[in-house]
Design a protein around this nucleic acid. Structure first.
Lengths: 186, 186
DNA sequence: ACCTGAACACCGTTCAAGT
DNA sequence: ACCTGAACACCGTTCAAGT
C-alpha cells in the first residue's frame, strides 16, 4: 500500500551538513542523520545508496553554494577588483563552512568527488575574470595559481597551521596583492 | 613475570603509514596495524593511547621526514634557487606520500595535530631562505604566501581538482616563477 | 511505496587471565 | 611486563515484515 514519504534527499543532505558543521565528521553517523530528519537509520537507504554517496552529495551541495556566492561577486568592477572580490568571498565562505569546505579537496576518500559539471561552472567563472587580466593564453595557469593560493591559505588557516604568531590578515592582504599583481604582469 | 616486547612504537607507526599509503584511510584499522607488526589488536594499546594518538604520531612522522628532506635542499645556491628547490622538493614529497601528506592539513580531526616543535623547525628553515629575498620585515607573510600556494597546488593536484585539461606541469612552473618573483619584488 | 525492528559483520576499546 | 581471547558498545548495511 502506498505511503507518503516522510523525508527527502534534500533535507537529508541539509541535516547531514548541519551535523557535520556543528559536531564534526565523527558525529556524522547514519543514525544521527536519520534522527535529525525524523526517521530511523535504515530508511535513509531509500534515498541514498550508502554513506559515501551521502558524503558526495554534501560535497556537491557545498560546492554549488560556493559557486553561487562567487557568482554574485562578479559585478561591473575592474577585472582586478573582481578577482580580489572572488578571493575574499572564497575565504569568507570557507570560514563560514569550515568542515564542509574541508571535504572538497580531501583526497582521503576517492568516491565522494564533486560533479564535473559543478567544477566547470565555477572554473568558467574564475577563468573569465582572470582572462581579463592575462589574456586567454595564460588564463588557465593564472587561474590555477590564484585558486591554489586561496585554497592553500584557507586550508592552512582552518587547520590551524599558521602557528608563528604574526597577523594572518596582514599575510592574506600581502599575498592577495602580490598574486593579483603577478597575474596581470606582462 | 617480565616478558620481552614483541613490537615498538616506531614499527607500529611505520606499519600504519604503509597501510595508509597503500590501502587508504579506511583500511587503517587497529587490527590491520596489529597484524602487520605481528601482534593482536589489544596489544597496541600498550604503546598508543588510542587511534587518534596513532594518527597524530603518523602526522608527526610525515612532517619530520618532510622537514628533513627540505633541509637537504638548502645548499649554497642563490636564495632564489633555494626557494625554488624547496618548493619542488615539497611537491615531490607530497606526490610520493599523498595520503600521509593529506593528513597534515586535514582539519577534520582536532587532536592529531603535528607537534609545535616540528612545525617551528620547518618554518625556521623556510623563513631563513625567504628572508634573504625579502628582508626580515616581510619574511613571515612572504613565507606564508609561498607555502600556502605550494600546499594548495599539491593539495588540489592530489585531490584531482585540476580537471580542465591543460598541462599541470606548465601551471606549476608558471606559478612558481611568479610567486618567487613576487616575493623578491621591492 | 515507504518505514521499521531485528540481525550481521566490523571496528575501537577494555579487562581479566595467562606467561 | 607484555600479550591474548572474550566481551561491550557502536556503526554501516540488509532484509523480511508491517502499513
Amino acid at each position: 500500500m502506498p505511503t507518503r514519504p516522510r523525508t527527502s534527499t534534500a533535507s537529508i543532505v541539509a541535516a547531514a551538513r548541519h551535523i557535520l558543521e556543528t559536531q564534526g565528521l565523527d558525529a556524522l553517523t547514519m543514525h544521527a542523520v536519520a534522527r535529525a530528519v525524523g526517521v530511523r537509520g535504515p530508511s535513509l537507504y531509500k534515498r541514498v545508496r550508502d554513506r559515501s554517496e551521502l558524503m558526495r552529495l554534501i560535497a556537491n551541495d557545498v560546492f554549488r553554494q560556493l559557486g553561487a556566492r562567487l557568482d554574485t561577486m562578479v559585478q561591473g568592477q575592474t577585472p582586478r577588483e573582481d578577482v580580489r572580490a572572488i578571493a575574499c568571498e572564497y575565504r569568507a565562505f570557507a570560514h563560514a563552512n569550515p568542515r564542509a569546505y574541508a571535504l572538497l579537496f580531501s583526497p582521503v576518500p576517492e568516491d565522494w568527488r564533486v560533479d564535473l559539471e559543478q567544477t566547470q561552472r565555477v572554473s568558467a567563472l574564475l577563468l573569465r575574470s582572470v582572462a581579463q587580466l592575462t589574456g586567454e593564453r595564460d588564463a588557465l595557469p593564472a587561474a590555477r595559481m590564484l585558486v591554489a593560493w586561496v585554497h592553500g591559505f584557507v586550508s592552512m588557516e582552518l587547520a590551524g597551521a599558521f602557528r608563528l604568531g604574526g597577523d594572518v590578515e596582514v599575510a592574506f592582504d600581502y599575498a592577495l596583492e602580490r598574486v593579483t599583481a603577478a597575474i596581470e604582469r606582462e
